[in-house]
Amino acid sequence: MTDPVLSIRDLCVEIPTRTGVVKPVDGVSYDIAKGEILGVVGESGAGKSMAGNAIIGLLNRPAHISGGEIWLNGHRIDTLKGDRVRRLRGKEIGMVFQDPLTSLNPLLSIGDQLAETMMTHLPISRAEAHNRAIAALKEVGIPGAAERIGSYPHEFSGGMRQRVVIALALCAEPSLVIADEPTTALDVSVQAQIISLLKQLCRERGTAIMLITHDMGVIAEAADRVAVMYAGRLAELGPVRDVLTQPQHPYTHGLMASTPLAAQKQRRLHQIPGAMPRLDQMPEGCAFHPRCPHAQEKCRHAPLPATATAGGRAACWFPLLAEAAQ
């Protein structure tokens, strides 16, 4: 097996607050291989974006990486400083956020933005960059790319803008793309177009993609593997079909059961009791135990097993068996 594009080990992010230090990301480890889409799911506040931002080096102070390692193509990147982080970010890691306007400069035509980015990271001339910008827009499915190259972001619809952002994220030919809720603000039909575009890029260019979303349907259709986060920790990690249809972590099971299924008309939806704990009120032991129907004494005190060492997918002392999850 070849080395993964991205590899994070025991990643921790800390934020000092008035009431003490909180850990929005606490000991998270996963890999993403070339041409693989890793889905990241979990309730709001689970730390999905925080982990993504830590990888890109985009944490807002006072949040900072407080432990663990981040490796990109065999190089350790969490220790890089200042300018080198910025270069790496543009060249090796592309980003797509929920709101396309945060990634676009309203004052520059999209052609200029694409060309600038390419010239910063690739040894090419302006004329070459211009041609490649048109090709990049074509690739993401903007009709009439050559004519629209001089247009400004506000002249595009939301879905078109997100395509431009994807073109921008890809134009320096990064090996990793981090897409944080890229379709949450878009309509179903546009969402389908964007997801299909991401899958195609992943397949054709071998780009590794980290796809953060709430939408289990998007995960099922797009991801190869899925990481389920809960209260800053990894609850479960595994092949998407296994995790979604035979969850081993009671939290994953709860999430799936509360999703209305198109195929069957359940009378009531399953409810996970309670809410995710606040970061400054994290329970001892397994963070999920106060809401877990299967919690036992051990769950309340013993620190959690790491996913890898537990020999299974779930960071749980008593993972659900295939039959029990049905």
Partner: peptide, 24 residues
């Protein structure tokens, strides 16, 4: 029909459908 096809499904593992064309 287009809307239903485009909507992602929790059991749609690896589903490949040509996405809808055009915009509103």
């Amino acid at each position: 029909q287009m809307l239903l096809d485009a909507a992602p499904r929790v059991d749609g593992f690896g589903r490949e459908v040509p996405p809808p064309q055009g915009e509103i």
